[in-house]
């Protein structure tokens, strides 16, 4: 009896193992796949690299914020990556946001407060496209989750600009990127070595700034990750103990029957 079961399972499993690689092989294409990088926060119990997130925020602020919004973030969220209340107030106050109407029915500008959402560079999509040759710089708050390949893809994209291979021409206002779908991207290379000087006085390499901004964006798209992993450990430990006790009780109760 047992033997028969094993035989059929073996048949099913063998078929699966033979067929799956064939299927995967048959479905692969020859476009550039982003290289897998190691990201500390992607480890099972890994946490965000806070100093890197802070540097990444500086990159966003100095470069990307010129074109990309981050509508899901508020200035106050920066506390989660280690900025102090005073620093956050100062950062917010650098931006002016529209408020109102006031008692006279007028809209007015005021410095942003920590509770405000990040100020967007453009009023609307049409304005954003107009300022970017017709291409639309997407909101960055969720982008790591919204791209296949996540962090690896964003990093590869930011470091993947190149001259087009022989025989390919780049359209007007476009740039050649190995990892972008179709290779022609409407975003000029936003980062380069030496573009950014971090607060320690060192200027950042392309890879360094790309890594930092990518980690910042990863945090932005999943800000509750650390809380989630911490709670998960407790839940799993509880369930483990629960199951062991239930199993012991089950053995005891069934002992009379078996």
């Amino acid at each position: 009896m047992i033997n028969l079961y094993q035989k059929y399972f073996a048949i099913v499993l063998t078929a699966l193992f033979v067929f799956t690689p064939v299927a995967v092989f048959a479905s692969s294409d020859n476009s550039h796949h982003p290289m897998a990088q190691s990201w500390p926060h992607k480890e099972t119990f890994g946490t965000y690299d806070k100093p890197s997130l802070q540097r990444g925020f500086q990159v966003y602020r100095e470069v990307c914020a010129g074109c990309h919004s981050m509508n899901l973030l508020s200035y106050r969220n920066l506390a989660e990556i280690g900025f102090t209340a005073d620093e956050i107030k100062a950062i917010a106050a650098e931006d002016n946001v529209m408020d109102g109407p006031n008692d006279e029915g007028e809209m007015f500008e005021r410095p942003a407060r920590p509770s405000d959402r990040f100020k967007a560079p453009f009023e609307n999509e049409a304005q954003a496209r107009f300022g970017n040759n017709g291409a639309y710089p997407p909101d960055l708050s969720l982008l790591v989750k919204a791209r296949h390949g996540g962090e690896d893809y964003i990093f590869a994209l930011l470091t993947g600009y190149d001259t087009p291979p022989a025989g390919e021409t780049v359209r007007d206002g476009m740039y050649w990127n190995k990892y972008f779908k179709g290779n022609q991207i409407g975003m000029a290379p936003p980062l380069s070595s030496g573009l950014i000087t971090y607060s320690n006085g060192k200027s950042a390499s392309l890879e360094q700034s790309a890594r930092d901004i990518t980690q910042f964006l990863a945090w932005a798209s999943e800000p509750n990750m650390e809380e989630r992993k911490k709670m998960g450990l407790k839940v799993l430990l509880f369930l483990l103990v629960f199951s062991v006790i239930a199993y012991t009780a089950k053995r005891r109760i069934w002992a009379k029957i078996h």
Binding site: L239, F242, S243, A246, Y247, A249, K250, I253, W254
Partner: peptide, 8 residues
Amino acid sequence: IKDTFGLG
């Protein structure tokens, strides 16, 4: 009890 264990 068996369902409790399975559920766990």
